[in-house]
């Protein structure tokens, strides 16, 4: 009986598996391009094989290590900041009892997500330029010298992380709000009866309810440990900050401008995927060992 019932579960999985197989696994045949000097008119079969040459070209450069490190540093910081800020924001928002206000705040913070980086990057550039509001109003009033934020490598990284958070935290908050709304209110009532203040309630009820979803989001975010955000960096960077701000994707883009990028692009994509996949596995194992939670 039980078994028969469970057989249905496999049927349920079927549509998803077919879709994924057709649209994701079949095209993976294209990964062979990583080992080819791919010529579109020759196709996968006839393009010349070059072994590891594409990888060598990417990693035998003087700046390879630096570019990978930039990518890793920016991506990791973003992962952490984009996890912590939305969680804290969700908790603070959860305290607002006025429903109208809560809705308004929620809606407003999610708006920047919808501006593309071309537009948002332009706005960030204007604000931080030598004639922008920060350098003409804020810093002088604090008695500080103007700072060329986007022309200095360290400031550049800072700007990249903060502006990314500014744009995305509101959208990222949604999933935590959804988790909060799944909490059974009777748990709070019970805590209240026990005499717990709000701080204790947050620790005892709210946070534990959030932990699983934080682990899920965090683990899956590990997949982008080498995705520092091409659109953003591309719209903000310039040669002055190459040493601190050039990332793998911008590098591939520049190479692609003079060379059809398929071989190299695929090779680097493969590298990024492999690293991301390993990181997800590590995060998965760590979560199940230390937090005793398996995300699937």
């Amino acid at each position: 009986m039980r078994l028969r019932k469970n057989a249905v579960l496999y049927w349920m999985l079927l549509p998803g598996m077919i879709l994924v197989f057709v649209f994701h696994y079949l095209p993976m045949a294209g990964l062979v391009m990583a080992f080819q000097d791919f010529k579109p008119w020759l196709g996968f079969v006839k393009s010349p094989w070059v072994g590891w040459e594409n990888f060598q070209m990417a990693f035998q450069r003087e700046d390879s290590l630096q570019v990978v490190w930039n990518t890793f540093f920016i991506a990791c910081t973003k992962i952490i900041v984009n996890l912590v800020v939305p969680v804290v924001f969700a908790l603070l928002l959860n305290e607002i009892r006025h429903m109208g206000l809560k809705k308004v705040i929620q809606t407003l913070v999610y708006l920047p997500h919808f501006l593309s980086w071309v537009v948002f990057g332009g706005i960030v550039g204007d604000i931080l330029s030598s004639q922008g509001i920060i350098n003409t109003l804020v810093l002088p009033s604090l008695g500080l010298d103007p700072i060329l934020f986007l022309a200095d490598g360290n400031w550049f990284r800072f700007v990249v992380i903060v502006s990314d958070n500014w744009k995305e935290f509101g959208f990222a908050t949604i999933v935590f709000l959804a988790a909060l709304s799944n909490i059974d209110p009777s748990l709070y009532e019970a805590a209240e009866v026990d005499g717990a203040n709000r701080w204790r309630q947050t620790w005892a009820v709210t946070l534990p309810a959030l932990v699983p979803i934080v682990i899920v989001v965090g683990t899956l975010a590990m997949s982008s440990v080498l995705n520092a955000g091409f659109d953003q960096i591309f719209n903000l960077y310039n040669p002055l900050v190459y040493d601190k701000g050039d990332i793998i994707d911008t590098f591939v883009y520049r190479v692609g401008l003079l060379n059809s990028e398929f071989g190299l692009g695929t090779a680097i994509g493969l590298f990024k995927s492999a690293v991301g996949f390993i990181m997800v596995i590590i995060a998965y194992v760590l979560a199940s060992r230390f937090a005793n939670y398996r995300i699937f």
Partner: peptide
């Protein structure tokens, strides 16, 4: 399923 979050064949095969 998770494997496909990361690995993809890219534009041409698709």
């Amino acid at each position: 399923f998770v494997f496909t979050m990361l690995f993809n064949g890219g534009l041409i095969p698709s």
